[in-house]
Simulated scan of single mutants.
Amino acid sequence: MRFLKILRQMEIEKEQAYASVLMYMALGPTRTKQVYQDENYQRNEAVDKDNTMIALLVVWSILIILFNVILLVLIPCYWKLRASVKHMLMFSAAIADLVMGLVVCPLIADLGVNRKFLHGCSTQMSLQALSTIIVPSVTTWAVLLININYILRITSYYYCDLSQKIGMAISIAVTPWVLTVVILVPQLVAGVDERKCTLYFPSETARKAVIVTSFVPQCIGIFITFLVAFVMYLIRRDELVLDAAGERLQAPSDICLVSFLTLSMYLPKELLLLNQGFTQCTSEVECDALHWIRILGTWELLGKSFFVPLAWTFCHQLREAVRSLWEQATWNQKF
């Protein structure tokens, strides 16, 4: 019996090492056939270290932290931003994106340095859930609500009046996290496979449930709402020089740009995730092509976390906040 337990433990360790290799391969140029097609491949064999990839992960992490910290500092410090539903939703999304820079990128870089995952199976599964499901869910919910907020501000006087209240802004900002925790976390807990050290959905019903409740409906909602926001602005820009809240009606350029970036940069990785286990290649050419799609999708998934905060600089109120804080700082230095 003891011998069988030892064999079983060795098999589990091989499966976990194999999951680590797959995570590493999703970022680097290691050929797919080294894992999928080579019959002599040992699943606990370490993948060669890629210094370029590790350096790029470090740069990605610094950029994600920098741009999201800028948002997290500006929004609470400027009264117009912290009293706005839109900017509190941006604050909520920035926290989620910051997780990618503080947790996800360093852990994957550590995997590249050590050539295997050293932090346990629970950490590896949490990393997978954070990077591919939880953070994308929070940020897509936030973008969807930002788009809806813009539409309501154009069409409803009462909403414009209420949207300036800090309590309402904070309450709505918490909504993306609540929706993600309530809807997705139970499904993720049910999908844990500790033997393979990965998230695994055992049935087609479970997989469809994740599709219906996560990225796909939010993606459709974002696409529809940013089109509606753009059309509503074109219709009402001449009619409303000032909106009901007394603010100049602004073109939704930042909303359209952020919506486009969110959809385009999340879509490849999310489609691969939803088809995990079903997307099979039949030749070396197909395997290599699929592998490079995985690499592109993974880097886009990480890159979204700093490209979107950068895109928010198109928001005039953020630039106004920077000018105001700079004037305050220089004024204090003078006196």
Rank of each mutant, 00 (worst) to 15 (best):
K5H: 01
I6M: 13
L7Q: 10
I12L: 06
A17V: 02
S20D: 08
M23N: 07
Y24C: 12
L27M: 13
G28Q: 08
P29C: 06
P29N: 11
T30A: 12
K33G: 12
V35P: 08
Y41W: 09
N44E: 06
A46P: 12
V47E: 11
D48Q: 14
D50S: 15
L57E: 09
L57V: 10
I65M: 14
L66K: 00
I75N: 04
C77V: 06
Y78W: 04
K80G: 12
L81Y: 10
R82A: 04
S84Q: 01
F91Y: 08
D97V: 00
D97Y: 07
V99R: 05
M100V: 13
L102Y: 08
V104D: 02
L107H: 04
L107N: 02
V113P: 00
K116G: 09
L118A: 05
G120M: 02
T123F: 05
L127I: 09
A129V: 09
T132N: 13
T140K: 04
V143Q: 03
N147I: 03
Y150H: 04
L152M: 08
I154V: 15
Y158T: 12
D161K: 14
Q164F: 07
I166D: 10
M168K: 09
A169N: 10
A169L: 04
I170P: 04
I170G: 06
S171I: 05
V174T: 10
V174L: 10
P176L: 07
P176M: 06
P176R: 08
L179F: 12
V181A: 14
L188T: 01
L188F: 01
V189T: 04
A190P: 01
V192F: 06
V192Q: 09
D193I: 09
D193C: 08
R195T: 13
L199N: 13
L199Q: 14
F201R: 13
A206C: 09
A206F: 11
A209N: 15
V212W: 14
V212R: 15
T213W: 15
V216S: 14
Q218W: 06
G221I: 06
I222R: 07
T225G: 07
L227V: 08
L227G: 07
L227Y: 00
V228F: 08
Y233I: 06
L234E: 12
L234Y: 05
R236E: 12
R237A: 08
E239T: 11
L242V: 07
G246Q: 00
G246D: 02
L249S: 10
Q250R: 08
P252V: 03
D254H: 12
D254E: 13
L261W: 07
L263Q: 03
L263Y: 03
S264T: 14
M265F: 14
L267R: 02
K269Q: 13
K269R: 14
E270C: 02
L271Q: 08
L273G: 14
Q280S: 04
V285G: 03
E286Y: 05
E286V: 09
C287R: 05
D288K: 03
D288I: 00
L290I: 06
R294I: 03
R294P: 06
T298N: 02
L301C: 04
L301G: 01
F306G: 06
F307T: 04
L310W: 09
A311L: 02
T313Y: 11
F314T: 03
C315S: 14
L318E: 11
R319M: 15
R319K: 15
R319Y: 13
S324D: 15
T330C: 11
T330M: 12
T330G: 05
